[in-house]
Each structure stands twice: as C-alpha cells, then as structure tokens.
C-alpha cells in the first residue's frame, strides 16, 4: 500500500449485504483498501466476487437499492461518502468520481446526441455556459481520439461503433476532471485490437489528467499491462493485494496462483493440459464458515474450513489472506527453481 502518498480513496471494512428470498447475500464482506492520487489500481475477480458491487458502493449508488445494507466507511478525500447526505454525494459523483461502464451500448442514452450527454455534466457540475460546455466537449472528444469532433458531437450514440462509443464514455467521464475514475470491465465488450486502443488511451489520459483509475475486470491480462497495484477478490473478500510485478511473478494466494495458471499464455510454451481450479465459485448466500476458497483449494487444511484467514501484511506492500502462504511460496520456488 502506498500509505505514504496522498490517500485519495480509502475503503474501510466495507460490507454490502443484499436481502433475497434465498437468504442474505454477502456480496462484499469486510473489504479494506486505499487508492492514492493518480494511482492505477486493478480490481480483479470472477463474476459474483463483489468487484462491481464495491464500485457501486464507492459511487454511492448502493443507497438507491432498497434491499442493500452497507456498513463500513468509504472515505474520499477525507469525507465518508456513506455518511454524507445524498445531495453532496451526487455532487461528488460525476465530478470527482466518474465511471466507465462495460457496455457502451446500454450506458449511453440512445435518444440524446452525444453533445447533450457531455454538456449536461459540464453545465451541472462545473457551471459552464452552454457555449463553453460545447467547446470543452469538442476538445474532450478530440482528446479521446474522435475525428471531426465538432461535427460528430451532434451524432447519436448508435452512429458510433463500439470502440468509438467507449471513447465517448471516457470523454464524458473525464469531462469534469475527476480525481478518481472507476472503469468496470471497460474493454470486455470490445475486440482485441480495439481493447488495445482503449487501454492505451486510458493509461495516457490518466497520467495526463492525474486521475486515479480503478480498473475492474476478470481479465488478468488487461490489468497486467496497465495497473501498478492489483487487488484480487474472491467471494466478496480481498484475498490478495500487492504491486503488480511481484504479485504476478510470485502470487501468494492459491486463488491467484490458480487463476494465473489456468489461463493459456501466448508467451509461454504450449502445455498439454491447463491446470484448472477445481469446483465452482461459492454461493454467496451460503458461504462456508472458513476461507471461501477452501473447497477448491489444494492446500486447504482443517484450519481453513473453520476460520477465515485475515488479510495480513506480508511486506513489500503486499497483503494476503491465506494460512498457507509460506507453504505456497516454498512450493512455487521449488517448482520454478530447477
């Protein structure tokens, strides 16, 4: 954790429960992490691991869900977003914290020209006049790489291709110079060659605008080239955290190890068989009492089934929630060494 640098966002013991007919779903379960100014953080996990719900909570949108119970604290520049009244959160949301969604098709209102979508935020949050807002929008659209921005600003979302729409989304998100950008699976709906463009653009703009970015994705490859710090989530909890390079090179949590091994890689020789993680992700309304990964873990012992391992610091800015980290690290070193 870059505790030294200015802390932009710090999430403290965040839990989000949803009431459902099947019981209480613990979507997020005691998650703590922080993001420094201008930092690029990757939040990685499978569907249902709570990564998107965490983002929803940071945006303060969970309070609009009637069946959600949120506890903990989300401090953004020292102010707890969960304790603030809705009108103040609304001011922060969109201006200081912006979001890029997975699907640019459904997240842009199809009946409004993109100019309207862009100027709206500028006028509401920054109090610009319509002319100024339009000028700024055109500037932003050219920044994100939309040719002939001045003409295209009158176009409707459907007149743009998937990659272009995602660029428009980014332009809208950046319009008010946010301090924090949440990107929820920003490239999942895009093709590989377009994904490369968008990732590059996001990296470039983040350094240009000094905005911190949280990239939420299931794709380890997407965050590997982009983020400096990685958070791995499983079943509503953070199981591992650390700087990207050491984390990818020597993962400490069996889940991270399993994920990395189960993905075929272009830069490695072809294996005859992939090393898969056994079993399936757990049902969030019936979590096991101990470590949620224990039923799928090859290192699990009695201890793992009884108590959930705490997310403990392991040096070099890393944290890991596993009782058997030492055993794992030992084995991995043995595996790699000869």
């Amino acid at each position: 954790m870059n505790a030294g640098s200015a802390q932009l966002l710090s999430v403290k013991d965040l839990s989000v429960d949803f009431a459902s007919q099947e019981g209480v779903v613990h979507a997020v379960d005691g998650v703590s992490f922080s993001v420094g100014s201008g930092e690029l953080v990757g939040l990685v996990g499978e569907s249902g691991c709570g990564k998107s719900v965490t983002a929803t909570a940071i945006l303060g949108l969970t309070r609009m869900l009637p069946n959600a119970t949120v506890t903990g604290a989300i401090e953004f520049e020292g102010r707890d977003l969960l304790a603030l009244p809705e009108n103040e959160v609304r001011e922060i949301r969109g201006r200081d914290i912006a979001m890029i969604f997975q699907d640019p098709v459904t997240s842009l209102n199809p009946v409004l020209p993109i100019g309207r979508l862009m100027t709206e935020g500028l006028e509401n949050h920054l109090g610009l006049s319509h002319t100024d807002a339009t000028a700024r929008s055109i500037e932003l659209l050219s920044t994100v790489g939309i040719p002939q921005a001045a003409e295209r600003i009158k176009d409707y979302p459907h007149q743009f291709s998937g990659g272009m729409r995602q660029r428009v989304m980014i332009a809208i998100a950046l319009s008010c110079n946010p301090r924090l950008l949440l990107a929820d699976e920003p490239t999942t709906a895009l093709d590989v060659t377009i994904q490369a463009q968008i990732l590059r653009l996001m990296r470039q703009l983040s350094s240009e605008y000094g905005a911190a970015v949280i990239v939420i994705t299931h794709d380890l490859g997407v965050v590997a080239g982009m983020c400096r710090r990685i958070l791995v989530m499983y079943a509503g909890r953070i199981v591992e955290e650390g700087p990207a390079k050491p984390l990818f090179r020597h993962p400490h949590h069996p889940y991270t190890v399993g994920l990395l091994r189960s993905v075929p890689r272009l830069d490695r020789p072809r294996a005859d068989e992939l090393v898969s993680i056994q079993g399936l992700p757990p049902d969030l309304s019936h979590l096991p009492p101990g470590c949620a990964f224990a039923p799928r873990c090859w290192l699990a012992t009695d201890e793992c089934w009884c108590a959930a391992p705490p997310l403990a610091a392991t040096g070099e800015g890393r944290r890991c929630a596993c009782f058997h980290r030492d055993r794992l690290v030992e084995r991995e070193t043995e595996r790699v060494a000869p």
């Binding site: 291709s161 463009q197 080239g225 090179r249 272009l266």
Partner: peptide, 23 residues
C-alpha cells in the same frame, strides 16, 4: 500483439502494433 499477457514484465517489453480505427 494486441493480446494482453498476464505478466506486467512481459507487457513492458512488448512494443505492440496498435491498429488504428475500427473494423
């Protein structure tokens, strides 16, 4: 060259050909 590799070090060494425009 556009396929992301889950390894920050490998990613750093790559000089990808980023295609312009859309299909």
């Amino acid at each position: 060259s556009a396929v992301p590799i889950p390894d920050p070090e490998a990613e750093e060494r790559r000089r990808p050909v980023v295609l312009q425009g859309d299909v």
